[in-house]
Deep mutational scan, measured.
Amino acid sequence: VTLFVALYDYEAITEDDLSFHKGEKFQILNSSEGDWWEARSLTTGETGYIPSNYVAPVD
């Protein structure tokens, strides 16, 4: 499982989006939707859509 880490803070715009803070880690559930990925936060356990350009793979 490839994990991703937030590079910036993000505040949800719609109820389907997931708010997060810089440094938060995610498991990507679906990355086939283009620039918005469905993800689960490993910090909160919540799922929602995140902007793919706000995250990077964890080394």
Results as ranks from 00 to 15, higher is better:
residue 28 I to N: 01
residue 8 Y to V: 07
residue 29 L to N: 06
residue 17 D to V: 15
residue 39 A to T: 02
residue 40 R to Q: 09
residue 40 R to L: 13
residue 32 S to T: 11
residue 36 W to P: 05
residue 15 E to D: 15
residue 55 V to K: 00
residue 57 P to Y: 06
residue 53 N to Q: 11
residue 29 L to S: 05
residue 5 V to M: 08
residue 41 S to W: 01
residue 29 L to G: 04
residue 17 D to K: 15
residue 19 S to I: 02
residue 31 S to Q: 14
residue 50 I to C: 01
residue 31 S to C: 12
residue 44 T to D: 03
residue 28 I to A: 03
residue 8 Y to E: 08
residue 52 S to E: 04
residue 26 F to P: 00
residue 42 L to W: 06
residue 37 W to L: 08
residue 2 T to E: 12
residue 27 Q to G: 03
residue 32 S to I: 11
residue 12 A to K: 08
residue 53 N to H: 12
residue 16 D to Q: 14
residue 40 R to W: 06
residue 37 W to F: 07
residue 49 Y to V: 07
residue 29 L to E: 05
residue 15 E to P: 13
residue 10 Y to E: 00
residue 1 V to T: 14
residue 57 P to A: 09
residue 4 F to T: 04
residue 1 V to Y: 12
residue 55 V to G: 01
residue 4 F to H: 07
residue 42 L to N: 04
residue 29 L to W: 05
residue 26 F to L: 09
residue 9 D to R: 03
residue 52 S to D: 02
residue 34 G to H: 13
residue 50 I to Y: 00
residue 7 L to C: 08
residue 9 D to V: 02
residue 27 Q to W: 13
residue 53 N to E: 09
residue 33 E to G: 14
residue 46 E to I: 10
residue 40 R to P: 00
residue 26 F to R: 00
residue 19 S to V: 02
residue 3 L to K: 05
residue 41 S to Y: 02
residue 51 P to E: 02
residue 10 Y to D: 01
residue 25 K to P: 05
residue 46 E to Q: 14
residue 56 A to W: 09
residue 17 D to N: 14
residue 42 L to M: 12
residue 10 Y to S: 02
residue 22 K to L: 06
residue 6 A to Q: 00
residue 30 N to Q: 08
residue 31 S to T: 13
residue 11 E to A: 10
residue 35 D to I: 11
residue 6 A to L: 01
residue 15 E to W: 08
residue 11 E to P: 04
residue 56 A to V: 14
residue 5 V to S: 04
residue 42 L to V: 09
residue 38 E to W: 15
residue 44 T to Q: 03
residue 14 T to D: 11
residue 6 A to E: 01
residue 10 Y to M: 03
residue 37 W to K: 03
residue 7 L to K: 05
residue 17 D to W: 15
residue 50 I to R: 00
residue 15 E to H: 11
residue 59 D to C: 13
residue 24 E to P: 00
residue 45 G to V: 01
residue 48 G to L: 02
residue 5 V to D: 02
residue 15 E to G: 13
residue 11 E to H: 11
residue 23 G to T: 02
residue 10 Y to C: 04
residue 44 T to L: 02
residue 15 E to Y: 09
residue 57 P to V: 07
residue 44 T to S: 09
residue 25 K to I: 15
residue 32 S to P: 10
residue 2 T to D: 13
residue 20 F to S: 01
residue 2 T to V: 13
residue 27 Q to D: 08
residue 49 Y to K: 14
residue 13 I to L: 13
residue 14 T to Q: 13
residue 18 L to M: 13
residue 47 T to P: 02
residue 31 S to I: 11
residue 20 F to I: 05
residue 53 N to S: 15
residue 55 V to A: 04
residue 17 D to G: 15
residue 8 Y to P: 00
residue 51 P to D: 05
residue 40 R to K: 12
residue 53 N to P: 06
residue 12 A to W: 02
residue 16 D to F: 15
residue 3 L to F: 09
residue 43 T to I: 09
residue 40 R to G: 02
residue 23 G to D: 06
residue 51 P to W: 07
residue 19 S to T: 09
residue 21 H to P: 06
residue 58 V to M: 12
residue 56 A to F: 08
residue 31 S to Y: 13
residue 34 G to N: 12
residue 19 S to A: 06
residue 48 G to Q: 02
residue 29 L to D: 05
residue 18 L to N: 01
residue 9 D to Y: 04
residue 37 W to S: 02
residue 39 A to M: 05
residue 41 S to R: 14
residue 35 D to Q: 11
residue 57 P to Q: 08
residue 51 P to L: 07
residue 50 I to T: 00
residue 59 D to K: 11
residue 23 G to F: 04
residue 38 E to N: 09
residue 19 S to W: 03
residue 2 T to Y: 10
residue 31 S to E: 09
residue 22 K to S: 07
residue 29 L to V: 08
residue 36 W to C: 07
residue 41 S to I: 06
residue 57 P to N: 05
residue 28 I to S: 02
residue 4 F to N: 02
residue 44 T to M: 02
residue 56 A to H: 08
residue 17 D to C: 14
residue 59 D to H: 13
residue 5 V to F: 09
residue 1 V to G: 14
residue 54 Y to V: 05
residue 22 K to N: 04
residue 21 H to W: 07
residue 48 G to K: 02
residue 23 G to C: 06
residue 8 Y to L: 09
residue 52 S to T: 07
residue 40 R to E: 06
residue 31 S to R: 11
residue 50 I to D: 00
residue 55 V to Q: 01
residue 39 A to R: 00
residue 28 I to D: 00
residue 1 V to A: 13
residue 41 S to Q: 05
residue 14 T to A: 13
residue 13 I to M: 14
residue 49 Y to D: 02
residue 5 V to K: 05
residue 30 N to P: 04
residue 40 R to Y: 09
residue 7 L to Y: 04
residue 50 I to S: 00
residue 2 T to F: 08
residue 14 T to W: 14
residue 26 F to Y: 01
residue 59 D to F: 13
residue 8 Y to F: 12
residue 25 K to N: 07
residue 59 D to W: 12
residue 50 I to F: 01
residue 51 P to S: 05
residue 11 E to F: 10
residue 18 L to A: 01
residue 37 W to V: 06
residue 35 D to H: 12
residue 36 W to L: 08
residue 11 E to T: 13
residue 47 T to R: 09
residue 48 G to W: 02
residue 53 N to A: 14
residue 16 D to W: 15
residue 57 P to E: 08
residue 21 H to A: 11
residue 55 V to L: 11
residue 56 A to N: 06
residue 30 N to C: 09
residue 3 L to A: 06
residue 15 E to V: 11
residue 33 E to R: 15
residue 52 S to F: 07
residue 33 E to T: 14
residue 16 D to L: 15
residue 48 G to M: 03
residue 50 I to E: 00
residue 11 E to K: 10
residue 49 Y to A: 05
residue 54 Y to H: 09
residue 36 W to S: 06
residue 27 Q to F: 13
residue 34 G to D: 13
residue 21 H to M: 11
residue 15 E to F: 10
residue 33 E to L: 14
residue 18 L to E: 00
residue 14 T to V: 07
residue 40 R to N: 04
residue 43 T to G: 07
residue 39 A to N: 00
residue 25 K to A: 07
residue 39 A to H: 00
residue 2 T to I: 12
residue 1 V to K: 12
residue 42 L to E: 08
residue 12 A to Y: 02
residue 35 D to R: 09
residue 11 E to Q: 12
residue 41 S to K: 14
residue 10 Y to A: 01
residue 13 I to R: 14
residue 15 E to T: 12
residue 39 A to S: 03
residue 51 P to K: 07
residue 43 T to S: 13
residue 13 I to V: 14
residue 9 D to L: 02
residue 42 L to G: 03
residue 20 F to D: 00
residue 21 H to Q: 12
residue 27 Q to E: 15
residue 28 I to H: 01
residue 25 K to E: 09
residue 47 T to F: 07
residue 11 E to R: 08
residue 7 L to V: 06
residue 2 T to C: 14
residue 39 A to V: 12
residue 49 Y to H: 08
residue 9 D to H: 05
residue 52 S to L: 05
residue 13 I to Q: 15
residue 47 T to M: 09
residue 35 D to P: 12
residue 38 E to C: 13
residue 33 E to Y: 12
residue 21 H to Y: 11
residue 12 A to C: 05
residue 27 Q to R: 08
residue 11 E to I: 13
residue 24 E to T: 07
residue 27 Q to H: 11
residue 20 F to Q: 00
residue 43 T to K: 13
residue 6 A to F: 01
residue 58 V to P: 04
residue 7 L to E: 04
residue 45 G to I: 02
residue 2 T to A: 11
residue 3 L to V: 14
residue 20 F to W: 01
residue 22 K to T: 08
residue 4 F to C: 09
residue 37 W to E: 01
residue 32 S to W: 10
residue 2 T to L: 12
residue 9 D to T: 06
residue 25 K to Q: 12
residue 51 P to A: 04
residue 38 E to M: 15
residue 5 V to C: 07
residue 42 L to P: 02
residue 30 N to F: 07
residue 12 A to P: 05
residue 28 I to P: 04
residue 22 K to R: 10
residue 10 Y to W: 11
residue 14 T to N: 14
residue 30 N to T: 08
residue 40 R to V: 11
residue 23 G to M: 03
residue 5 V to W: 07
residue 35 D to S: 10
residue 3 L to I: 15
residue 15 E to S: 13
residue 46 E to R: 15
residue 19 S to E: 03
residue 21 H to V: 14
residue 30 N to E: 07
residue 35 D to T: 11
residue 23 G to R: 02
residue 40 R to H: 07
residue 56 A to S: 09
residue 46 E to N: 12
residue 54 Y to P: 01
residue 26 F to H: 01
residue 3 L to P: 06
residue 47 T to W: 09
residue 24 E to A: 05
residue 59 D to N: 12
residue 3 L to R: 05
residue 46 E to F: 11
residue 53 N to W: 13
residue 25 K to C: 10
residue 56 A to Q: 10
residue 47 T to S: 09
residue 19 S to R: 04
residue 54 Y to N: 03
residue 20 F to P: 00
residue 45 G to R: 04
residue 14 T to L: 10
residue 15 E to C: 12
residue 20 F to M: 09
residue 38 E to G: 05
residue 41 S to V: 05
residue 20 F to G: 00
residue 58 V to D: 10
residue 14 T to I: 06
residue 55 V to I: 10
residue 42 L to R: 03
residue 37 W to M: 06
residue 42 L to H: 04
residue 16 D to C: 15
residue 55 V to F: 10
residue 50 I to K: 00
residue 36 W to H: 08
residue 12 A to N: 05
residue 41 S to C: 07
residue 30 N to L: 06
residue 6 A to P: 01
residue 55 V to Y: 01
residue 13 I to W: 09
residue 57 P to I: 09
residue 36 W to K: 13
residue 58 V to S: 07
residue 11 E to S: 10
residue 25 K to R: 13
residue 45 G to E: 05
residue 49 Y to E: 03
residue 18 L to G: 00
residue 18 L to I: 11
